[in-house]
Design a binder for these strands. Structure first.
Length: 302
DNA sequence: GGGCAGGTGTAAT
DNA sequence: ATTACACCTGCC
């Protein structure tokens, strides 16, 4: 039996990997009927499973793989936002204990418990979320898969690493079209060029304040309010970022404003005031809850 | 088959 | 600061 990852206690693997943060995971079934997730982290193919005992690293059994996985899953040493540490236990339960101080979150947590904020490569997050605009998860996933297959470094037989900035920047438009990018193709290439030629340095961005980094991100074509905040949160780990998409907007309006419409600005201001350093984590739970329970065809909007 | 999907850019108010 | 519209593509 593959080794357990005790730090991931409280982490719900499927909820985390299917939460719309990452697009490089597939679920499958082993010969003995166990569900297994296969995905790419950096240049390695990971296989993960989860059972009553906990989360297991099935493969690779290589030096550094466990540490890389811990970090990726957000259950490494620095998982908590400053000032929110409530004591012992894994990162996920501690954050949820802090979130539950908010009665609304405390109530929906029953349905969303176990979602972890992943720590991903900012470059991959940047391109993935440019692709995500006005798009749906299955198609985003397919686009990234095709792009990686066409332009990414091969990893074993069938998998490919995410393309480098240089490869994407010099990609032919036919390749990008084949990647199903549609009208986003010019955005992706322009963003790749800005990174490839050093105009935008994502490592430097990671050392800036959140507002400074946001301002720089907004200069990238295809990066607006929502995508920018996704990059801040999922790639640069600015935990006060609060990406507002239609689901989060719907969730906040429904759960905190009796279904009354709010503008984007109002929702951003609300999130800052209400959730503070936990805003990013709160967003994950509101998003997941809204997706599962606030479908428009089931909700009468006030 | 017209409308829509986990937004953004642009133009107009 | 908000609103209206087009936009690739796959799917209902």
């Amino acid at each position: 039996m593959p080794a357990l990852l005790p730090e991931a206690s409280g982490l719900h693997l499927r909820r985390t990997l299917d939460s719309g943060q990452a697009f490089r995971w597939r679920w499958g079934t082993t010969a003995d009927g166990r569900e297994i997730a296969t995905g790419i982290i950096g240049r390695r193919i990971f296989q993960l499973s989860q059972d009553a005992q906990g989360l297991r690293l099935v493969s690779p059994d290589a030096p550094g793989a466990r540490e890389a996985l811990r970090r990726y899953l957000g259950v490494g040493s620095s998982g908590m936002p400053p000032g929110s540490d409530t004591g012992r236990g894994g990162a996920v339960p501690r954050i949820e204990a802090a979130l539950a101080a908010d009665p609304v979150l405390g109530r929906i947590l029953r349905h969303t418990r176990g979602i972890s904020l992943l720590v991903q490569d900012p470059w991959e997050v940047l391109i993935s979320f440019i692709i995500s605009q006005n798009n749906n998860i299955p198609k985003i996933t397919r686009s990234i898969e095709r792009l990686s297959r066409a332009l990414g470094e091969p990893l074993g037989e069938t998998a490919h690493a995410f393309p480098t900035p240089a490869r994407l920047a010099s990609a032919r438009s036919r390749t990008l079209r084949a990647g199903l990018l549609g009208y986003r193709a010019p955005y992706v290439r322009a963003a790749a060029r800005l990174v490839a030629d050093g105009t935008i340095d994502l490592a430097v961005l990671g050392r800036m304040s959140e507002d400074e980094a946001r301002e720089v991100l907004h200069r990238i074509p295809g990066v607006g309010e929502k995508v920018g905040d996704c990059i801040l949160l999922f790639g640069l780990r600015h935990l006060t970022a609060f990406p507002v998409d239609v689901w989060v907007q719907r969730g906040v309006e429904r759960l905190y404003f009796r279904g009354r419409a709010r503008t984007l600005r109002q929702i951003q201001a609300f999130a800052r005031a209400r959730f503070g350093p936990l805003a990013g984590h709160a967003q994950q739970h509101l998003f997941a809850y809204a997706r599962a329970h606030l479908r428009p065809d089931r909700v009468r909007r006030a």
